[in-house]
Computed example of a mutant assay.
Amino acid sequence: MTHEEILSMLGDYVDYLIANSSAEAPMWNIEKVRSGKPNKWNYIDGCMITACLSLYKTTGDEKYLKFSRDFIDWFVQEDGSIKTYDPKEYNLDNVNQGKNLFILYDIFGDEKYRKAIDTIRSQLLTQPRTKEGNFWHKDIYPWQVWLDGTYMAQPFYMEYETRYNKMQGCIDSYKQFMNIKKHMRDEKTGLYYHGYDESRQMYWADPVTGCSPNFWLRAMGWFMVAMVDVLERMDEQLYNEYRGIMAMFKQTIEDVHKFQDEETGMFWQVMDHPGVEGNYLETSGTALFAYAVLKGVRLGCLPKRMAAWAEKAFYGTCDKYLSKNPDGSLQLGGICLVAGLGGKDHRDGSLAYYFSEPVVCNDAKGVGPLVLAYTEMIARK
Rank of each mutant, 00 (worst) to 15 (best):
L299R: 02
Y374S: 05
V256W: 01
L330D: 00
V367F: 01
P128N: 06
Q237I: 14
L55C: 07
V338A: 08
V297K: 02
F215S: 00
S350K: 01
D106F: 03
E198P: 03
K88I: 15
A51G: 07
L124H: 03
Y315G: 03
D118C: 09
W309Q: 14
D148F: 07
M220L: 15
A339Y: 05
Q127S: 12
L65Y: 06
N362Q: 00
L341P: 06
E62W: 11
T162L: 08
R380N: 13
D79M: 09
Y164W: 10
Y85A: 01
G190V: 12
P142Q: 02
M152A: 07
T286Y: 07
K304C: 12
K381S: 15
Y193G: 05
T2F: 08
Y85T: 05
A247R: 11
N91K: 10
E78K: 13
G98I: 04
T162F: 03
A290E: 06
Y43M: 09
K131F: 02
D86C: 11
D93N: 15
P369Y: 11
C47L: 15
K312F: 09
F259S: 01
Q77G: 06
D348C: 04
M234Q: 05
V367A: 04
R163T: 15
C211E: 10
S81K: 13
L17M: 05
S329V: 07
N29C: 12
T59F: 02
D118V: 10
R129C: 14
V270G: 00
N39S: 15
I6G: 01
K381G: 12
Y157A: 12
A308Y: 12
G368L: 05
Q176Y: 02
K324N: 03
T59Q: 02
Y321D: 15
H194W: 02
L55W: 01
G342K: 00
K312C: 10
W204A: 00
I49D: 00
S212F: 02
I120D: 03
L341M: 12
L337C: 10
K166M: 14
N20M: 00
S68F: 03
E311Y: 09
M266P: 00
Y239R: 15
T375Q: 03
D345F: 14
P303W: 05
R298A: 06
L299Y: 03
L330P: 03
G244W: 01
K182H: 08
Y105A: 13
V228F: 00
F177W: 04
D319M: 08
N214Y: 07
I180W: 02
Y85D: 07
G265N: 05
V359Q: 06
G349Y: 00
F67Q: 03
L53A: 09
V95M: 11
L10T: 13
W136E: 02
